[in-house]
């Protein structure tokens, strides 16, 4: 039979990727040395993956022997990959955790610009969700707690002029939109 039984192992995730709306890599992690060993192969795969997924929001695709679950928002695409026989719902749980964590870190502004402003925290979050292919944590609240998200606002004195302008503009935009 084609679908062999799954190896009882904790190593279930083959990769986690965030791409922007041009298909460029924002962050990417691959956990299996046997698939896409070089950056060149990884990027080729990402390009292909993006081409196949950016138009329809179908949430799941099988590509090159990998099951990829994905989710997109504004100009960001979140992917979690596993072997083609992997339980899709486990991958989905990891994806949800990734998305919810990022969304909370960015305070619901899931956009490329805000993501880059908080790139350090997002890196830590990805690292807390998956370690070398093992799901470390699937509950986004626990992830947020572990990445030491700065809950307090940055004191005004430490902000640059641009940051102040930016936040003022955001506030204005929101008040206009209401």
């Amino acid at each position: 039979m084609e679908g062999s039984l799954l190896e009882p192992t904790l190593y279930v995730i083959k990769g986690m990727v965030i791409l922007d709306n041009d298909g460029h890599r924002v962050l990417a992690k691959y956990y299996d040395k046997n698939i896409f060993p070089t950056a060149k192969e990884q990027k080729a795969f990402e390009k292909n993956l993006f081409n196949k997924t950016h138009r329809s929001n179908a949430e799941i695709i099988m590509l090159d022997g990998l099951t990829c679950v994905y989710y997109s928002n504004v100009d960001l695409f979140f992917y979690v990959m596993g072997s083609s026989h992997e339980n899709e719902l486990i991958l989905m749980t990891a994806l949800n955790c990734l998305y919810d964590s990022v969304s909370n870190i960015l305070r619901k502004n899931v956009e490329k610009r805000t993501l880059f402003e908080n790139l350090d925290i997002v890196m830590l979050a990805m690292d807390e969700i998956c370690d070398g292919g093992i799901i470390m944590e699937a509950d986004f609240k626990a992830v947020l707690q572990r990445v030491a998200l700065r809950t307090d606002d940055i004191p005004l004195g430490e902000q640059t002029v641009a940051q102040v302008l930016q936040s003022a503009k955001e506030q204005l935009k929101w008040s206009l939109l209401k």
Partner: peptide, 11 residues
């Protein structure tokens, strides 16, 4: 060929 069905192979 033992490719699971539903897979898209880019190459």
């Amino acid at each position: 060929k033992a490719v699971p069905e539903g897979t898209i192979m880019s190459t």
